[in-house]
Design a protein around this nucleic acid. Structure first.
Lengths: 342, 342
DNA sequence: AAGGATACGGCAATGCTTTGCCTAATGCTG
DNA sequence: CAGCATTAGGCAAAGCATTGCCGTATCCTT
């Protein structure tokens, strides 16, 4: 009997176990949970019976008694997108260690929908909720009237007394520049997306700070803001090259932008990474690993972010809620689009 | 009091509602569920009380009694990948938030892990399970000894008495060819990925069938199998062009392959779509929508697949399990990489 | 051998909702 | 006005696991 799941009809209850072991139900419970005063031999008898019947305590009954369901809700806004998924994986991972199950729901960027999802999760008696935003930016708090703790991930709550876990975008920009500087690049241009994104601005600030520390300035004096797609990457790269042919490296706010930049460089027969090095952001493997050349990119460590969020939530569920914002440090993933000057 | 979630302490129980309404607990229950013989005025009194306290029945207690938890498990193998997510969204959609919640777990392609996840879900008393494969291919059944119904999505079970919902890969290949033929293309080459993928073979079969019906043959006589990445797309396109310069269209087994093909065509200054039309598979927006030119692609309708899987599971949970494999029809998403010959 | 201490394990209650059954009250009919 | 048919709503049990409390059996001590 190798598989543990072998029941085909109803699942065994503790009463079945107790009967088989020849003890009362409470005794069986104590035996399995290591409680009470029982002879070791009794415990073993019960354990054997439980094993034989593949018994697992009904979490509904257990939860009813403990006023804990052992489940957490995860509300996301970006399920088809790039960012929720690693966060979700990290969270699932971390919750698994605490024997918590994740109830998933996708609000698809709709606040009304989100409200309904939250209500549904609360109605389901989840013990806590993680809300994953669809952009790394501020978002409205859910308030403090919910009966369970909430942790905000990726997007942070506008209420500083909430607990939020976010990527360290400032550091992302800084690390990218530091990498380029380490490669001996001195003429660094910055192309990024929608300027209304706080993360975008933060990265640029981080980059600017690092440049200043290195005694450099951004080529063109400022970052080129636009849209988060390949087309803008192409266009912006063209403009940058036309106006500032001295540029020797380009820092991009996303991998998609970087792909667009690579397109333009390719078109103009400019060698990457020798003549111009390119670094992206997000490290979206499918884009970065197979581009030509494969793209060096700043990884936000989203799985770690998910794990942290889960850990914070568990903490809060155990009565020690955390406050404020915690930023997860990114790291640079080296590929072939950057290299030291010859 | 606009928000429905306003509780800050413990959630109201039915006893609270009953007390407020001045009736007994069972009466309150009947009133809210539309059961029993009650005066309309009593029902309203109870309804008002419930509303005032934002009462929702504790699903743990309810589930305990009904032997139904109101949750379904979703085991995926491809959380970071492309395919699970739309399926998951479709399923979530179909279950509806008030009725069934989705418990997510990611087995990451590991059979042992999967086994554990399934056990955990069963231990949680889910009412049913959807297993999403990581490739559209055959996979081993979980057997029939589980206490809850299982539906296989994307990958089908090797046991035909299981219920599986899969993409119609044959039709994918056929539709792609039909589209190219409708564009007046007659020299159609086929580039695809790993030949061990059943879906890959199926698509090629579908394409071959459609070609035959149109009185055509595949350029080079057979499909070029390789790997599922951009590099192979580039290489295979190069080989195809070298050996068969007459080719006027290329059918690719994935969008990534198609991007590689576009690279090579671009490099050789061949006009897409005029000189050679390119069609991809999977319709992965981030890749297909921003390539140059944007890529026409066959969409597997994965959300629909998820919805169907959910519907089948609900059916099975209600006592009418379905058997066998159901295939979801794909559709072609037109973009700029294909056009009629001038 | 008798008294007390200790080890062992059972009883009952708890958490919350649902449903079948039964009683009390109301209304109607002759 | 008496008696039966309805109607309204309460009581109790069930579903399952957990835990505090208490009784009993065992053992030790003197």
């Amino acid at each position: 009997m190798p598989t543990a799941v072998r029941t085909s009809g109803k699942l065994a209850t503790l009463a079945d176990v107790a009967r088989l072991a020849g003890v009362s139900v409470p005794t069986a419970s104590k035996a399995l949970r290591g409680q009470g005063q029982l002879r070791p031999e009794t415990r073993q008898k019960v354990a054997a019976a439980a094993e034989q019947l593949s018994f697992t305590a009904n979490p509904l009954a257990r939860g009813l008694l403990a006023s804990r369901s052992g489940t957490v809700g995860l509300v996301t806004h970006d399920l088809e997108g790039r960012f929720s998924i690693p966060i979700l994986m990290g969270a699932e991972d971390a919750f698994g260690l605490d024997r918590l199950s994740v109830m998933l729901s996708d609000a698809r960027g709709d606040a009304i929908r989100e409200q309904r999802q939250i209500e549904a999760l609360v109605a389901r008696r989840v013990d806590g909720i993680i809300v994953v935003g669809y952009r790394s930016d501020q978002r409205p708090t859910l308030g403090h009237r919910l009966p369970v703790p909430v942790v905000y991930a990726y997007a942070h709550s506008n209420d500083t007394s909430d607990c939020s876990i976010v990527p360290n975008s400032f550091l992302s920009g800084r690390l990218a520049v530091e990498h380029l500087v380490a490669c001996g690049r001195t003429q660094i241009g910055v192309i990024t997306g929608d300027p209304t994104y706080g993360a975008s601005q933060e990265r640029v600030r981080g980059a600017a700070t690092a440049l200043k520390e290195a005694g450099l300035t951004m080529v063109g004096g400022k970052a080129l803001f636009g849209a988060w797609n390949q087309d803008w990457g192409r266009a912006a790269a063209g403009a940058l090259l036309d106006r500032h042919p001295e540029v020797d490296s380009i820092l991009c706010g996303s991998d998609q932008l970087a792909l667009g930049v690579l397109d333009t460089l390719w078109e103009r027969r400019i060698n990457v990474p020798q003549d111009i090095s390119v670094i992206g952001h997000d490290n979206w493997e499918v884009l970065s690993a197979y581009s030509r050349p494969p793209l060096t990119s700043v990884d936000m460590n989203l799985e770690e972010l998910g794990r942290r969020a889960a850990a914070r939530l568990v903490q809060a569920m155990n009565g020690s809620p955390a406050e404020g914002m915690e930023a997860i440090a990114p790291h640079v993933v080296l590929r072939k689009s950057t290299m030291p000057v010859a």
